[in-house]
Simulated scan of single mutants.
Amino acid sequence: MPLPPFVEALAERDPEFYRAVRAVAEAAMGPGALDAKTKTLITLALDAAHGAGEGVAVLARQARQLGASEEEIREALRLAYFVAGNGVLVAADAAYR
C-alpha cells in the first residue's frame, strides 16, 4: 500500500514514528470487512471534509482504478459536504438562542 509522500518522509526523519504510522495505515486500509473501493471512497470524503485537495485528487484516481464510478465519487463528496456543512448549521443555531 503506497503511503502519501508526507508520511514516507517520516522514514528518514523519524523512523520509529514512521513504523507506527505505517502500522496504523495498514490496519486501517488493509483487508477487512470493507472492500478497498469503499475504504478509498470514505478516505476521499474525509479528505474533502478536511480541505485536503491534493489528497482528494489522489484518492479519486485510486477510487477510479478500483472501479468506482463517477456517481459513487459524487455521492462520497456529497456526503462530505453534508456532514461538514451541518457543523455550520449547528453553530448558526446559536444566533437564535
Rank of each mutant, 00 (worst) to 15 (best):
V83P: 01
A28K: 03
Q65I: 08
A94E: 11
A48S: 15
R13E: 13
V21L: 04
P15Q: 06
G87Q: 13
G51I: 10
Y18D: 12
A36V: 06
P4D: 10
V24D: 11
A91I: 06
S69F: 07
A28W: 03
E54L: 05
A76S: 03
A52N: 07
E12F: 12
I42H: 09
A45R: 01
A68H: 08
A60Y: 02
V21R: 04
A95G: 12
A33Y: 06
V90K: 05
L10I: 08
A11F: 02
A23T: 10
G51D: 12
E75Q: 03
G30S: 08
G30F: 12
Y81R: 11
G30Y: 05
A27F: 11
F6D: 04
A23W: 04
I73P: 00
V90A: 15
R61P: 01
R13I: 10
A45H: 02
L66I: 14
A11Q: 04
E70H: 08
H50W: 13
R61E: 02
L34S: 05
R61C: 01
E75S: 04
R74W: 07
R13L: 12
A92C: 14
A52K: 00
A60N: 05
P31D: 08
A80P: 02
D47Q: 15
A36T: 09
G30L: 04
L66C: 14
A20P: 09
L34H: 05
A28H: 05
T38E: 01
Y96C: 15
P31A: 14
K37G: 02
E8F: 12
A95N: 14
D47W: 11
